[in-house]
């Protein structure tokens, strides 16, 4: 039996994580004050209003959207490629984004203007977001073009992997020939952060992410048909090529926009779909996709709270926290269910 009764709990979990991420940080703001300030009231301290509206709220919204986006994209890729290890970046999207950023940060000429960019404003830099988007978009375009020509979905997977390797190789080459401080700047970007998205950038980031999520919902029915494999999906009247196009477009928009604004965030995309399958005990995307959305957002918010080391001035790299704290939790959930094989026995 699928456990759709879990949805209210997942929703409460998300609200809780969201509230905590607003309340916790280097300065602790009591929850009742958070609510009062959000509702337009005066906080006990004037600085709290600034902290909430200028920093924590956009950051929490970003983390929510990125978590939802990457978990959804991961689910789509795992089903499309019938592969439990598939993640949002499997088609080389993040490698493309990395290449774009690497070219700007490490590259000759353009990078010159960025040498004074500090770590904090690195993520707020629209040039970088643009470079990452361009890189991701180039790879996406190539993959979509090829997806319309190849019959076999697995071929597409291999081609995507190859794109990824190619981009990574160029990035490595760029790192090899770059000055240490620029390399450090690049690795800072590569470790991920939600802190750089300002309200200005939110106007680009949020609509694109929401568009990707909306496309994800539209593609739920085709994803379910694809559970039976391409042949059965066709026999059900599905235009497999067209469905594949839209699914890849949705997943790539989600992965691309997340990477462009927050750096490559690993782990969420591959792990959360498995947790959703375990918790809900089904492969039906009508339940899985909303669950991934909620779970992904909650996990990401919590990881970000931990990364902030509440009460201290230090911040841990996001990807490190994801793995250190996320892996044990997720291993426990998945091993307890022992159904990975059943879900991907093909």
């Amino acid at each position: 039996m699928s456990r759709s009764w879990l949805f209210p709990i997942l929703l409460i979990l998300l609200v809780l994580a969201f509230a905590l991420s607003l309340a916790l940080g280097s300065v602790r703001i009591p929850l009742d004050q958070v609510v009062r300030i959000l509702l337009g009231g005066e906080g006990e301290k004037a600085s709290w209003t600034t902290i909430l509206f200028d920093f924590r709220l956009p950051k929490a919204i970003t983390a929510t959207l990125v978590g939802a986006a990457l978990a959804t994209a991961g689910l789509q890729m795992q089903t499309l490629f019938r592969n439990p290890l598939a993640d949002p970046f499997i088609l080389g999207i993040s490698s493309g984004a990395s290449l774009g950023v690497a070219l700007v940060v490490l590259g000759i000429g353009v990078g010159g203007a960025l040498t004074f960019v500090t770590g904090l404003s690195l993520f707020g830099n629209l040039t970088l977001a643009l470079a990452a988007s361009l890189g991701a978009g180039t790879v996406l375009g190539a993959v979509l073009l090829i997806s319309q020509r190849v019959q076999n979905t697995l071929t597409l997977l291999v081609i995507g992997l190859m794109f990824g390797y190619l981009a990574s190789a160029i990035v490595t080459l760029l790192i090899y020939f770059s000055q240490p401080e620029r390399v450090q700047l690049f690795s800072l970007w590569a470790s991920g952060s939600f802190g750089g998205v300002t309200w200005e950038q939110m106007r680009v980031f949020a609509p694109v992410a929401l568009l990707g999520l909306f496309l994800g919902f539209v593609m739920i029915k085709p994803l379910n048909a694809l559970l039976l494999g391409d042949d059965y999906a066709r026999s059900l009247g599905l235009n497999v090529r067209r469905a594949r196009f839209w699914i890849i477009l949705s997943a790539s928009l989600l992965a691309g926009v997340s990477t462009a604004f927050c750096g490559p965030i690993w782990f969420i995309g591959v792990a959360v779909p498995h947790v959703a399958r375990s918790l809900l005990n089904t492969a039906d995307h009508r339940l899985l996709l909303p669950a991934c959305l909620l779970l992904g957002a909650s996990f990401t918010l919590m990881a970000d709270i931990i990364a902030q080391l509440p009460g201290s001035q230090r911040v841990l790299p996001l990807n490190v926290v994801m793995s250190l704290f996320g892996v044990p939790v997720i291993l426990w959930i998945i091993l307890r269910q022992r159904q990975l094989r059943q879900s991907f026995a093909a």
Binding site: L228, R277, S343
Partner: peptide
């Protein structure tokens, strides 16, 4: 070919046969 459709109940699997008849959300 033996279908490996993941963790689905028999009912849900059969319901996939309604694909040509259902709305955009299935």
């Amino acid at each position: 070919t033996r279908v490996e459709a993941g963790n689905l109940s028999a009912w849900t699997l059969v319901s996939l046969g309604r694909h040509p008849y259902t709305d955009w959300l299935g």
